[in-house]
Structures are given as C-alpha cells and as structure tokens.
C-alpha cells in the first residue's frame, strides 16, 4: 500500500530513540498517522513543526498498518507562528481542534482546503480572528453540526435574522423569536457575512461557535471537553482586540 499527498503536520510524538510518529491532515486521505524514520533527529526537527506543509509519501504492507512516511518540506509556517503571540495561539487552536474533531482516515477535502488557507494567513494578525471564525463555522459544518443561517426557522424570512436556536443551530429572526428571544443565542451580523466585522461581533461569533463546539460536538460526538487551546486563543484574540 502506498500513496502520495500534501498535508499539514498536526502533531509529532517521539517513537523510540530516533523515530517519530506524526499526525497529518491531508486532502485525499484525511487525518493520518505514520512513523517517520529518523524523525527525532536534529536535522529534521525544524521540518516537523506543527503547521508545516509537507509532501508526504506513505507506505505500509497492509492498509490498516500505521505505515511509514517519507516527508519533504513544502513550506514552513514556524517562523510566522513563532513571530506572533496571536499566530502561535491560533495555530495551537487549529491543530488541537483538528486532532480533537477529525477521526483518522476520513476524508474532509473541503475542510482541508479551508485549513490550509487559514494557516497561510498566519502572521497577519488583523485578518486572523475573522478567518478563524469562518474556519470554525466550516469545521462545525463538516462535522455535521453546521449552522443553518439561510432563513428564519419560524417564519422562513431571510431578513432580520438575529438569533440562533441552541437546539437546531438554525437562524431565527427578531419577529420569529418573540418571547423566546432570551433563550436563543445572539447571532452577530459577521456570521451572515454582513456588517463591519468589529471585534465585538467577532467575539460574539466565537461565543456562538464555541457553544456548538462545546455543547454539541464535544459533548455528543467526541465525549471529551473541548481543548483548552481554543479557549486560550479566543481569550487572547478578544484581549488584543480590546487593547
């Protein structure tokens, strides 16, 4: 068995004295693990940093074996990530959430493309919080908990959408909410691709995606608490936006 693909490095664990087991997110093979012979060496350490874009050749005798990777660096994102506090926290959040949510060897091509685009923006701190919010929306959608913000779940109207139902993830208009408004989650305009994407709106967006990540995805699908890295990134992004 063998294949070749591009992928994003998610995690590296030492395996024995000289090898490493890496987790990568690839376009055509999903999240995939494999052994890198000599992966613990100092020569390859700069290449095997989380977020790195790699050219991967995987080989194993049988398909369900862990197999071995031959890796070639395509581009490193370490310098961009290590150069900015927000970028570093963002990279940690993306890597932690990807590892947390995605099952191994399940293809998520659209999410892969979004992830690659997001990571290519590392270091552009003014763009990152909004791009990350959009990525979390895409992640929820890919995992089957997508928010349906196309029309009001009660009245069917497409204007005046102001809330999201915590049960269904569907948008609700101000008129449709009525006396239930206090039980619904506020829907910031930025989630609809409208408005000026202010820091406050993005923070509200993080609250909304955070709710579904925590209450639905983590609780119902993964059965583990959400990684702290996500909360650390959101807290930092909000703090920097206020400063």
């Amino acid at each position: 068995m063998e294949w070749r693909d591009h992928g994003i490095l998610l995690n590296v664990r030492r395996h024995g004295e000289s090898s490493a087991i890496i987790d990568v997110f690839t376009e055509s093979h999903g999240r995939h693990a494999g052994v890198v012979r000599g992966g613990a060496s100092r020569k390859i350490a700069p290449v095997l940093q989380p977020g790195a874009q790699l050219d991967l050749a995987w080989r194993a005798r049988l398909e369900d074996h862990i197999g071995t990777f031959q890796v070639e660096p395509v581009r490193s994102r370490a310098a961009a990530a290590l150069g900015s506090r927000l970028a570093l926290a963002g990279l940690n959040a993306v890597v932690a959430l990807t590892l947390f949510c995605l099952p191994e060897r399940e293809v998520h091509g659209a999410l892969y493309t979004r992830t690659e685009q997001l990571l290519d923006l590392l270091g552009q701190d003014e763009l990152w919080p909004l791009a990350y919010l959009r990525w979390e929306q895409a992640l929820l959608e890919d995992m089957g908990y997508g928010l349906d913000l196309s029309s009001c779940a009660v009245t069917g109207v497409r204007e005046g959408l102001a809330y999201v139902s915590p049960k269904t993830g569907r948008a609700v208009s101000t008129g449709g909410a009525g006396e239930w408004a206090s039980r619904l989650l506020p829907l910031p305009e930025v989630m609809l691709g409208q408005g000026d994407a202010s820091a406050n709106e993005i923070a509200q967006g993080f609250d909304l995606t955070g709710f579904f990540l925590r209450q639905k995805l983590a609780a119902e699908l993964v059965h583990k608490p959400l990684p702290e890295a996500r909360d650390r990134f959101v807290a930092l992004a909000n703090r920097l936006a206020q400063a």
Partner: peptide, 23 residues
C-alpha cells in the same frame, strides 16, 4: 534570539530559521 547558528551555512538552513534570522 532565533537565527543562524555558529558555523551554519544558509544553503542548509530551513526556511523557518532563515525567516526568523532575517526578522
């Protein structure tokens, strides 16, 4: 600081190290 190690040759450095050194 992060950058070029003593005795390091640019040709053999990874692009992350070169970026950090340039910065």
């Amino acid at each position: 600081a992060q950058g070029v190690p003593i005795g390091g040759e640019l040709d053999y450095l990874d692009d992350g190290t070169i970026s950090a050194a340039l910065r």
